[in-house]
Simulated assay, not measured.
Amino acid sequence: MKKQWDNPVEYTMPEGVRVPASMDIGGVVVAPATVLAPMAGVTDTVFRRFIRNASLFAEGGAGAANVDREVTNQQSGCGLIMTEFTSADGLSKMRESKRKRYLTFYEDEHPIAAQLFGSNPETLAEGARIVEDTGFDMVDLNLGCPAKRVVACNGGSGLLRDLPLIAKIFEAVRGAVKIPFTVKFRLGWNDQHIICVPLARLAEESGLNAVSLHARTREQGYSGQARWEHIAEVKDAVRIPVIGNGDVRTPEDACALVAKTGCDGVMIGRAAPANPWIFRQIAQYTATGRYDEPSEADRYQMIRTYFEMLLDEGREDEHASRAAEGKMKQFASWFTHGVPGGAGLRKSIYEAKTGPKILDAVERFFETRLSGEALEPLQRMEDVPEDFPAMDSAACAG
């Protein structure tokens, strides 16, 4: 999944149009109507709670006084969070103790949806039952992931070539659970096979409670522009909530998406790891027409908080401990984007051998910057190795 966007369009605030205060998905109120996209290798429980906390409006905190509670409808700027996509086939076969690694969530994550992928209707129905029994508020079907290994199994966007099979999956999953059932999909396999409107209608006819559309084809991957006009077509075609996704990088983008498509909610993927404050900024912008940009001190606090959360999660679990160190290095390239001298920080993180040493590198770097002292040579851009790890190439925002 690319961190950068291809020639992003710059939008201004549309007159009189805002991101909706809420939307109702099968009786679950999502307020405000913003959604953290499911992203493989990204939206685990630590990142989800991190985003939810980054979106909170603390009483008396920055921006809190500017946000109209009647507009945002709650104290968090992120209305719904979603898990990484999880194999339904894997869920049905693995031990219950192992399932917890994939389906762990905490009470402060509600409302939360679990996303499944697969191609067998019965297996997906069983996976949905497991999701419901675990206590999730919704179950979502992934019909958008473009990753080759997923498509090769006829999962994710691979299913976009087989509407009859999708219909069977919809029927099986809808019949298996009582919680809201939603689907996230792309425009189609390629430009010669755009099926978003008939697929949305099929979802509505099958009893699904909402649809999310990433306005690119599978063939596009994450390249080119998201074609929002197709989100508008889907919105015109169905009465269930339609959530728009694709190229939302700023609050202005979120409002422009609503203005151009009439969508009921906005889903944000790639922008969230790069700017964890984006949901709070959207809520501020919706209420006031302006929003606060994070300071360097804010960014330091953000990086340190997330890394500390990762380390805490790994203290009692060796697998989680190794995963935490990997994620700290993986996310460094997102979190330090735009930080003066950030290349040197990324290098020192990359070279650190343990999680605590990574955290030490972050603290040394920002304490030096915030104290106004001169940077050490380590922070020079040319010191960054060419093979510095970026976001997991298998990450999938659907």
Rank of each mutant, 00 (worst) to 15 (best):
R280D: 04
D236H: 15
A283W: 07
L311R: 14
V266Q: 13
Y285Q: 12
Q284L: 07
G221M: 08
V242S: 04
A283Q: 03
Q301T: 06
R280G: 01
R304D: 11
Y285L: 13
R304V: 11
W228F: 08
S295C: 07
A259L: 03
K260S: 14
V211A: 12
G289R: 10
D298N: 13
R249C: 00
W228T: 00
Y300I: 05
A256S: 14
A274Q: 15
V242K: 06
K235G: 02
R304N: 03
Y306M: 08
G246E: 09
Q220F: 14
V238S: 12
R227Y: 01
Y291P: 12
K260P: 03
D253W: 09
F307T: 06
D236V: 06
D247L: 05
Y285V: 02
S223M: 10
E219Y: 12
G289C: 05
Y222C: 05
Q301N: 14
G244H: 03
T261E: 09
V266G: 11
T217D: 09
P241F: 09
V242C: 11
L213Q: 01
P294G: 09
R216F: 11
R218Q: 15
R249I: 06
N275T: 08
Y300M: 11
K260A: 13
L213G: 00
G221W: 08
V242Y: 05
A287C: 15
Y285M: 15
Q225G: 02
E233S: 13
A256M: 11
C255W: 03
F307C: 07
E229C: 02
A283K: 07
R239H: 14
I243V: 15
R239M: 04
W277N: 05
I282F: 05
I243H: 00
H230R: 01
D264H: 15
G221R: 10
E308G: 04
A259N: 13
N245E: 08
R227K: 12
